[in-house]
Design a protein around this nucleic acid. Structure first.
Lengths: 338, 338
DNA sequence: CCGCTCTGAGACATCGTTGTCAAGATTTCG
DNA sequence: CGAAATCTTGACAACGATGTCTCAGAGCGG
């Protein structure tokens, strides 16, 4: 058996010839158009089976001007559970619309993000969901003007007017702080990521609102921004605990920070309360159970995909920003007193 | 601002008109073909920028007969970390080949799997990686004959001759049993999934080989097949422990079984040794650390993608079956003596 | 100054499919 | 029974891009 001799793929014309009809009639049959004699339908179907014909979707799309039934998703890294959960949710919605999903990773590189975006536009996807890596998306403007639908996920767009679906970061952070205040804490150490990051900014804003509402003074020595990894978070916790009038509770602005903070508290066997933001796989299994501001990651992806398909379906209303609510998940804070 | 008036997407002819050249010349410019006067190149590029032209890849592919620079991946469920890890690995390889990846879920439904497969063929992807859900893939034969490259992942194909990349299940299971035997265990309870499943079959075969090599009789009362979930696994463990001459060690054929077995042993505070197959996120954090036969899931995806791109690159050699080795990861079995 | 090669540019056909239109065949119904 | 309505079918062009071919003009040797 010679594995080289691959038959040429039969075209609609080959089928037509085999069935003794015109190409157009074959087209009618494969598209289930009415008004074809039953006998001819049989012949055509037989020829299709015989030859193993399969319509070339690209040619079909080109000619008919129909949608490509493909959408794109640009995320930072598919190996990250946060993003793979989103991808799965988007894929599920896409399938419900008989649409395929092309997922690409931007690897947090704004330049790559832009290349991937334009690439997918060249493929004429019907729409794009993008978790922004860069901070300027004006490059997308031309495409949007020419009909590309774009939904921004987890972070709002900049330099362009478009739909977005984000978590209600401010409200979540606020609720977390309020909960700590309700437990009687007055000195709360706040550790967040760089304010260059949208989510960090929003969460810090929520913290300030909660403190202001409770008339608790905002103490700069109890706030540390720009913390990027667990190690730095641990250091920040240590520094605050070693200061005068140390905090009795900590608010960790994301899960990496929560892990670092937890480690330091655990190491010192310090009983301070800890509130995290972002739930994660292992949070229930940390050395001490961790109470967090959680949200439904699937919902995030689903909502963005739903919005995108509304657009694809013809919705031309003004761009909207949809906020996914957060909820406080309490996990045995009492254990922290041990 | 009227959000309805989306400009028609400019075509190569529009650019040609704007630049005062022929469409072919525009084509030459965007494809970096030689022999175009520098002055004209400038004009064309200016017109492209002006109009926001972006080549229609579908039309380009259709005419030139080039590849679509897209591959497909059919998995069971993207939300499952095993599959998302594979998807990420495949995507990485694809990107290195400037190729996009369409990932679809078969949801373990053989019929859906077939539909998805044919769908992707219609899109003329350059190749497909498939984690088989069904047990007969002869439907793929026609496509393969007509040039579609297909690589089977994690399970070999049936009803068709094609490349596959699988884990060395038999050798892994064998190594696990040998390890238990070396620790002095002679009565080993074996619990595996349904033999209808390739991996379960292979693993059981590996177990038998190891026992035979060590001249340990194969005791039917110590083997339970067709165990599908943790609950059943726990029951199986219980039944064996309650029997005459109970096992001193257990071999769990997959991670769900390991979890169930672990729960039952923990519940009874039974000190029997436990060996799992498949590593998983939490295995280091189980009530007791779990020793497992592990393998590199990323490597699995990477190897399959590499094979696929070899094929796409023109390799027409006889189909191969590549085996990914396993390794034994020991995690404080001594703790089990507690 | 002639014939030659080589370069740069466009005309045209074509990839595989489908929208449009027109023509012949058939049915319907007054 | 004949005109109108309907059904079937195919010819043709076109979607947007590019491969092939042709041709005008530049450059060059003798």
């Amino acid at each position: 058996m010679d594995r080289q001799d691959r038959r040429r793929r039969p075209t609609i014309s080959d089928v037509a010839a085999a069935a003794g009809v015109s190409p157009k009639t074959v087209s009618r049959v494969i598209n289930h158009e009415p008004n074809v004699r039953a006998e001819l339908v049989e012949q055509v179907l037989a020829a299709i089976g015989e030859l193993g014909f399969r319509r070339n979707d690209m040619a079909s799309t080109l000619r008919s001007g129909r949608q490509t039934a493909t959408i794109g998703l640009i995320i930072e890294d598919l190996a990250n559970p946060f993003y793979s959960t989103i991808a799965a949710a988007v894929a599920r919605v896409a399938r419900a619309h008989d649409t395929h999903l092309i997922t690409v990773s931007s690897e947090e590189d704004p330049e790559l993000e832009q290349r991937q975006f334009l690439d997918l536009c060249q493929r004429r996807v019907d729409g794009l969901i993008i978790v922004p890596a860069g901070s300027d998306h004006s490059f997308a403007r031309t495409e949007v003007e020419m009909g590309m639908r774009v939904v921004f996920l987890d972070r709002p767009p900049s330099g362009i007017l478009a739909d977005s679906v984000v978590i209600d970061n401010a409200a979540g952070a606020r609720a977390g702080i309020v909960d700590l205040l309700d437990s009687g804490h007055r000195r709360i150490g706040v550790i967040v990521d760089s304010p260059a990051i949208y989510t960090a900014r929003e969460r810090l804003a929520g913290v300030r609102t909660a403190l202001a509402d409770a008339a608790v003074p905002y103490d700069d020595s109890l706030v540390r921004v720009g913390v990027a990894d667990p190690g730095e978070a641990a250091d920040a916790v240590a520094a605050m605990l070693d200061g005068d009038d140390p905090p009795t509770a900590f608010f960790a602005g994301n899960n990496r920070i929560a892990i670092g903070a937890m480690q330091e508290l655990y190491r010192r066997d310090d009983g301070a309360a800890l509130m995290g933001f972002d739930d994660f796989e292992l949070s229930a299994l940390m050395p001490r159970p961790l109470t967090v501001i959680a949200y439904d990651v699937q919902e995030l992806g689903r909502a963005a995909a739903d919005r995108l398909f509304e657009r694809i379906g013809g919705d031309t209303s003004w761009p909207s920003e949809l906020m996914i609510p957060t909820r406080l998940v309490r996990r045995g804070i009492e254990l922290l007193k041990s």
